[in-house]
Design a binder for these strands. Structure first.
Length: 218
DNA sequence: AAGTGTGACAACCGCGACGCG
DNA sequence: ACGCGTCGCGGTTGTCACACT
C-alpha cells in the first residue's frame, strides 16, 4: 500500500462514523482492505487502533477508579509492561489507555511511595544500629563497629549482630533473657523495631500493597 | 496579555509473530 | 520451506489544554 496520500492525526467525526459503519458490516479484520473499501484515507493500522481504542462498543471512557488503579499497579509489578495482558484483566479498558494512565499518573506515585518506604526502613535500621552499639558498649566496655553502611539492607540483619550470630532473633532473645532491667528494656525496644522489619513470613507474598497504604492518598 | 512549561491523552512507528497461499 | 500481507504489542511522539511566570 502506498502511504503518500494517507491522512494522519486526529480523527474527524465523519471518519469515525464511516469506520464504525464498515467495521459493523465487515467485521474487525483485514484493516487495510477495510480502510480502502470504506473510502478512508487512513492506514489499516490507524483504523484498527481507532476502533480498538475508542470506537469499539463496551469501552469505558471515564476516569479510572481506585480498584482499577490498584489492579494496574499490582499487575504492572507482577508482569511488567505487558499492557495488553493487563488490559484483559480490566474489562472496557484498552492497553493504550492503561499504558498512558500508568505513565502519567501511577508511575510517579509508585516511585515516590517506594522511595518513602525505603527511607522509613533505613531510618529504622539506623535507629537499630545506634541502639546495638550502645548495648555492646555497655556489656563489653567497648564499641564494635557496625557494617550497616556497607551492607545491603537484605543482608544487614544477618551480618550486623555484635555477637556474630547467624540469626538476629537469637541475639534479641539473649538480650531479653540475659541482661538486667535496663538492657531488658532495650531488648524489648529492639524487638519492636526488629519485628517491624524482620518479622517476615515466607508464606505471605509481600507486594506493593503491604507497604503502600498511603499510595492512594498522594 | 503573552510566552513558556507541564501534564494528559491520542495517535503513530517499528518490529516481531502469525497465518495463508 | 518461503514470501508476503496482516495483526498485535510496546515505545515514542504529537497535540492540546491548562497553569504558571
Amino acid at each position: 500500500m502506498h502511504g503518500g496520500n494517507l491522512r494522519k492525526g486526529t480523527w474527524l467525526q465523519e471518519e469515525d462514523e464511516q469506520l464504525i459503519s464498515f467495521v459493523t458490516r465487515l467485521g474487525e479484520r483485514r484493516w487495510d482492505s477495510l480502510a480502502k473499501v470504506a473510502g478512508l484515507r487512513r492506514s489499516g493500522k490507524s483504523c484498527r487502533l481507532r476502533w480498538l481504542n475508542y470506537l469499539r462498543p463496551n469501552l469505558k471512557h471515564g476516569p479510572f477508579n481506585v480498584e482499577e488503579e490498584r489492579l494496574i499497579v499490582q499487575l504492572q509489578q507482577q508482569w511488567g509492561n505487558k499492557w495488553s495482558k493487563i488490559a484483559r484483566r480490566l474489562p472496557g479498558r484498552t492497553d493504550n489507555e492503561i499504558k498512558n494512565y500508568w505513565r502519567t499518573h501511577l508511575q510517579k506515585r509508585v516511585q515516590v511511595q517506594q522511595g518513602e518506604f525505603m527511607y522509613e526502613v533505613e531510618n529504622l535500621a539506623r535507629d537499630f544500629k545506634n541502639k546495638s552499639i550502645d548495648v555492646v558498649s555497655n556489656s563489653e566496655g567497648e564499641t564494635k563497629e557496625s557494617s550497616i553502611d556497607s551492607c545491603p539492607l537484605s543482608d544487614w540483619g544477618m551480618r550486623n549482630s555484635p555477637y556474630h550470630e547467624s540469626r538476629i532473633s537469637d541475639w534479641i532473645e539473649e538480650l531479653q533473657n540475659g541482661f538486667g532491667d535496663k538492657e531488658m528494656e532495650l531488648g524489648q525496644e529492639f524487638n519492636s523495631i526488629n519485628g517491624s522489619i524482620y518479622d517476615y513470613n515466607p508464606q505471605q507474598e509481600y507486594d506493593t500493597w503491604d507497604y503502600s497504604g498511603f499510595l492512594w492518598d498522594l
